[in-house]
Design a protein around this nucleic acid. Structure first.
Length: 321
DNA sequence: AAAACCTTCAACCGCTTCATA
DNA sequence: CTATGAAGCGGTTGAAGGTTT
């Protein structure tokens, strides 16, 4: 025998709510309040289970539900709160009046998550992405870029002369900029957050085509790493989830993000990494916690051993999707 | 014009937490 | 302290609408 259905009644209606059902539920709750949800459908004259009624009320019929798309400020707040709270949608929703946990969850899964991934940020950990698939894309892109002659690239792109934002970069160049961001992230991790290998990487990110023209050969540093020849022991490559970060960080997450002088429109994501993600103390707090936790520590070191045990095979990263 | 594919989001499922007897 | 039922929560699904081929 499996688990019994959530409702005592067999044959209760499921699926989308009709306007008539909405009206009945709204009318009943307005007059009597919800009380015991299990009894609501019976009293309201609905052939639904109480759970379904509660969900319909909290996610749709409540008068304080805010309609319409999310603002940039709301999205930013969600990202910041998620970096502290993780997938605690109901907790996140308490900081956004009029928004439901379901709505926020949907927004995260359908839009924000994708944007973060494109930017080279792991939406689970809010740390730079280091998964193999993304790195291979980067490797291919760099190879293509280096195989093309620089004049062609210059000719193709007015963006290279004007810098980001002055002219709309085409899709390929936006992609390139995103890949450069990933490269930067990886190198930061390798170098312990210093940029010593490529001191002018930031200019490369800001204006990648000019950087190529000026002779930065990113393959020099990256390819050995991609081939697995570069030794690394930086645990940041598999940063643990920060879902258990102190609740006090919620306050920090809610703090307004300083606006960048050159950010505009979709550039809101350029500065979205919460400050504590790059703050050395809070970044390593989960690590200290991890190392204190025997079970978690065991599994972590086991994973490291798995990663390093086969030196002949390509380096295995966190592969997703 | 139509089929295939993609995206969104309301709603469901089942597990966990909480309150109460 | 334990058992039970209700409420809360997060993951998942699938229909509907939109977009691309």
């Amino acid at each position: 025998m499996g688990r019994p259905p959530c409702c005592d009644e067999i044959g209760v209606k499921k699926g989308p709510w009709s306007p008539e059902e909405d009206e009945k539920l709204l009318d009943y709750i307005t007059k009597h309040g919800s009380g015991n949800w299990k009894t609501v459908p019976k009293h309201a004259g609905l052939n639904r289970c109480g759970k379904s009624c509660r969900l319909r009320w909290t996610n749709y019929l409540r008068s304080d539900i805010k309609r319409g798309s999310f603002t940039q400020e709301e999205e930013q707040l969600i990202i910041n709160l998620h970096s502290v709270l993780g997938n605690k949608w109901s907790k996140i929703a308490t900081h956004l009046p009029g928004r439901t946990d379901n709505e926020i969850k949907n927004l995260w899964n359908t839009q924000i998550r994708k944007k973060l991934l494109q930017m080279g940020i792991d939406p689970e950990t809010h740390s730079p992405r280091t998964d193999l698939k993304h790195l291979m894309n980067l490797s291919q892109l760099l190879a293509i870029s280096n195989n093309n002659n620089n004049n062609n690239l210059m000719h193709m792109s007015p963006w290279a002369h004007s810098g980001l934002g002055l002219q709309q970069p085409d899709v390929a160049h936006q992609l390139l900029a995103q890949q450069m961001q990933v490269l930067n992230n990886v190198l930061q991790l390798i170098n312990g957050n210093s940029l010593s290998l490529l001191p002018n990487i930031q200019s490369l990110i800001n204006n990648p085509l000019d950087a190529f023209v000026n002779g930065i050969n990113t393959n020099t540093s990256l390819e050995p790493f991609l081939r697995g020849e570069e030794t690394y022991g930086n645990p940041s490559l598999v940063l643990p989830a920060q879902s258990d970060v102190s609740k006090s960080l919620e306050t920090e997450a809610k703090a307004p993000i300083p606006s960048s002088s050159n950010s505009s429109g979709s550039d809101m994501f350029n500065n979205q990494i919460p400050s504590h993600s790059h703050n050395s103390s809070s970044t390593f707090d989960p690590w200290e916690k991890l190392l204190e936790d025997d079970d978690a520590s065991d599994s972590f070191w086991k994973e490291i051993l798995d990663l390093t045990s086969d030196s002949t095979s390509p380096r295995r990263f966190l592969v997703e999707d």
